[in-house]
Design a binder for these strands. Structure first.
Lengths: 220, 220
DNA sequence: AATATTTTTTAGTTAGGCCTAAAAAAATAA
DNA sequence: TTATTTTTTTAGGCCTAACTAAAAAATATT
């Protein structure tokens, strides 16, 4: 069964909203990310359920079926591979590529994606550090830690950001963070859990717990 | 004013049908290439005329306005640049890329196309030998000749094919023609104007006048 | 528990892009 | 030049994916 542009977008967004927990997703949450109204979402969820791509019962929220997840992972795979292409080959910055990748992710050609993957030398992550699903529809577990979980006096390396909203990326850019940066957690505030971190041996900066939760690292 | 996927397709197809003459294009001709019915074409032509992209009077056929031609050339530029990318960078054959380029040509990002152009080292023609419009919306004149116009005993070089239908490309592939091939026109039949041509010094093959009209060459 | 608020669904529309069937105009043939 | 055929347009409808407004269900508050 073939998927329309709109259907692919809904599946991708439900996937994103489902990452990291098992709760069903609310109609409103989907409406916010699709930039549509809740009533439109209700219509589409019923349609997706008829096609067998989501489990949906009215007033109960929605979650992907295995078939829907497979489609969503295919879209995410394409999105992230194109992002690598845009940054590595076309010279865009990592905070400029999202909108273009949103378009490219809907190009339909399996052979193109396989060739692109090879051309990019089979990258494991996109420019934001997010893992690229395999062509069999598996999302690799990178096993990274959140910066908020690092103990005082430990050193680690920046591997990615968990949220890739434009605002968040700007913040990171302003902090001069780039993938691979050496982070040294110097202190953890016992009250608000904010941390002071030295980046590439520069003087330490303060990062709130909320922000630190969205920064992915591995121990050095 | 922004253009929808369907509108861009119509403009591109009207452009293709207009190349090489000044006559207005018939509704039926457009319907055939858009794979729609004549009634649907009538609707769309009225809409395109309202937006100022075509000159259209009912029962009189259609032709592009300057604004419409500019849009069409932008689409053709993107189509042909992506074809170069698919062949040169992704390793597709020149007869496999059309459908994928039909999708990629609608990706909207001026900066992407400029970067792609640079990445491909500013190609002058696509893999079929067709010229790539400039970013200012000018279709370069390559000044090639048609193989059908070459005199007996002259040598020339294959520069492209004027029609890129799948069937035609297959024919050329079967004849083992590839861009840059050395062609030697040995005889021109006085009655049906068919020619015998030796390709890369192999024994001569016969090519009908009709086919030869669609093969672009330059004199060696 | 009863009421108020928020969330979600239903009902009824709309716009884009296509369709078929029938009417009208243009082109061709007798 | 009249009749026939072909081309094109009109009229009316369908489907997708959105919308608003109102109703219904779920959740929160008093």
């Amino acid at each position: 069964m073939s998927t329309s542009f709109a259907e692919e977008n809904y599946l991708k967004i439900i996937y994103r909203l489902s990452e990291g927990h098992d709760d069903d997703i609310s109609t409103n949450a989907v409406a916010e990310l699709t930039q549509t109204k809740a009533a439109s979402v209700t219509d589409m969820l019923r349609k997706l359920a008829e096609k067998g791509w989501v489990h949906y019962q009215k007033y109960q929220g929605v979650r992907l079926s295995p078939a829907g997840e497979k489609i969503a992972l295919g879209i995410v795979r394409k999105h992230r591979l194109w992002e690598v292409f845009l940054v590595e080959k076309m010279g865009f910055n990592w905070d400029e590529v999202h909108e273009i990748a949103e378009q490219l992710e809907h190009i339909e050609s399996d052979s193109l994606i396989e060739k692109l993957d090879a051309f990019l030398e089979f990258p494991k992550t996109d420019p934001h550090g997010d893992p690229i699903p395999t062509k069999n529809g598996v999302m690799p577990e990178l096993g990274y830690l959140h910066l908020s979980d690092i103990k005082a006096n430990k050193r680690c390396v920046l591997m990615g950001v968990a949220k890739d909203s434009a605002v968040f990326l700007q913040l990171l850019t302003k902090m001069q963070l780039s993938l691979g940066a050496a982070l040294h957690v110097q202190e953890v505030n016992a009250f608000d859990r904010s941390i002071s971190v030295s980046i590439d041996n520069a003087p330490a900066v303060f990062i709130s717990h909320e922000v630190a939760k969205n920064i992915l690292v591995k121990l050095a």
